[in-house]
Design a protein around this nucleic acid. Structure first.
Lengths: 240, 240
DNA sequence: TTATACGGTTTGGCATACAATTTTCGGCAC
DNA sequence: GTGCCGAAAATTGTATGCCAAACCGTATAA
């Protein structure tokens, strides 16, 4: 789905890359093929704003910067295009995708449904150890909240959502969730920097943890969906 | 060489067209870049069983068969890999993906959730004309059912599900749905060839059509999910 | 007979060279 | 000063070549 693409940016500029969101580096088989390594590197660069949304990707320049030839770089770009992290223009190369608000809304809508399913499956199929791990992450996150450590909070928040989905054991769901989530990583990070309604999000996580502990699949599903709805409100209201 | 760059003929001989499920050919911008053309062609070949699941993709052989060099073919293969239509082995090339039963179950589980959301959005956001179109497809499908025209039924069935999701207007959902659905195309086609419980599926479609007509979002969502559950029963029981 | 070592062949991985298209920019006309 | 046209430069798209790793068959030794 083609986004506007040429529009500079949707959220704040965030030009200074002094704060690097840290890559999830959740990559598949990154150690093996050069193409995979390059693709992973590109994902990290996009997430860390080293490649800014809307900016063109110059193949020759990037390839010599990464010390690879254009061939594996181009193949890596194709991968990111099909992940919708970059957009390919006909004979004019590729630009880093910059989702507009409507696309963000759509992504969150789908993610909400997927996380609801993930929560349900986590309760139905997840073993106790898995759920204990998630609860442990939850308490770590609370700790970060009370320390006002936004970066730690952000990372633990991401880890929790990912773990809940993973606990369901549906590899397709895990995969799809990760792919859609990657498209929102930057925006979520930026949105997290404001502490708008931070306590609300924490309260929702408390409820999520309760439902997990109680193994209440239905309630957890509803909570997960609502929680993402809350994310949309945060991002949307901050848009301006 | 100078084969004048882009040769007009994109479609290939079609060697053994005894049973051709017909490609959806729902491709993005297939007319533009050679890589896109090759990727589309590969998708069609996989769907039509010209490239059979589990078989290796030999780059040199395929490239000369498609009259392109290995470079665009390799880039196209990368795209299909990230769509999970082919699987890439470390230093041993690519093979056509052959989903096992567990993966099919997972795919259907996620698709069920997505189609439920699609149904809900179709009712909430779809205008009357859109829904009328879907109902028209439904009646066409009924006609195919009574004619016992399995191929027409199959295609219309696919078109209906796609249209319902499309009516919701969520591009991300449409895209994700299409991608996951593509991985099941062959299996669904094969499953459709048996007329196991054909009437049950038709009855479910009747209910779906009713819910659409009544604009009952909640009921439609439940029906869509259950309907896919039914697909799983069909596929699973036939597996053996 | 079986296991294993070895060399030829095939295939994929990456780099580089060439072609086609787009962008840029200088010059000229208005 | 503004706008249009064209050639040069830059960039992407495609093809080809070289190298290394994996496969297969044979032969040799236990």
């Amino acid at each position: 789905m083609a986004t506007s693409g040429i529009e500079p940016r949707v959220l704040v500029e965030h030009d200074a890359p002094d704060t690097l969101p840290e890559p999830p580096n959740d990559n598949d088989l990154a150690g093996r093929l050069l193409v995979s390594q390059v693709a992973s590197k590109l994902r990290d660069m996009i997430i860390q704003d080293e490649l800014k949304p809307g900016s063109r990707i110059r193949e020759r320049q990037l390839s010599e910067r990464l010390n690879v030839s254009r061939t594996p770089l181009r193949e890596a770009i194709r991968i990111l295009v099909s992940e919708r992290l970059v957009q390919s223009l006909p004979n004019r190369g590729a630009v880093v995708a910059s989702p507009d608000m409507e696309e963000v809304r759509q992504l969150l809508q789908v993610l909400g449904t997927l996380e609801a399913l993930g929560g349900q499956l986590a309760v139905e199929a997840g073993d106790d150890a898995r759920i204990e791990e998630i609860l442990a992450l939850h308490h770590e996150m609370l700790s970060a909240y009370y320390r006002k450590d936004k970066l730690a909070y952000f990372k633990l928040n991401q880890a929790i959502h990912k773990s809940i989905v993973a606990a369901g054991g549906n590899a397709v769901l895990i995969d799809t969730h990760a792919q859609l989530n990657a498209r929102l990583y930057r925006i979520r990070y930026i949105s997290n920097q404001r502490d708008d309604r931070w306590h609300e999000a924490v309260e929702q996580h408390e409820q999520i943890a309760d439902a997990l502990k109680a193994r209440d699949a239905g309630r957890l599903a509803v909570l997960m969906r609502d929680h993402i709805g809350h994310t949309w409100v945060k991002v949307h209201s901050a848009d301006g």
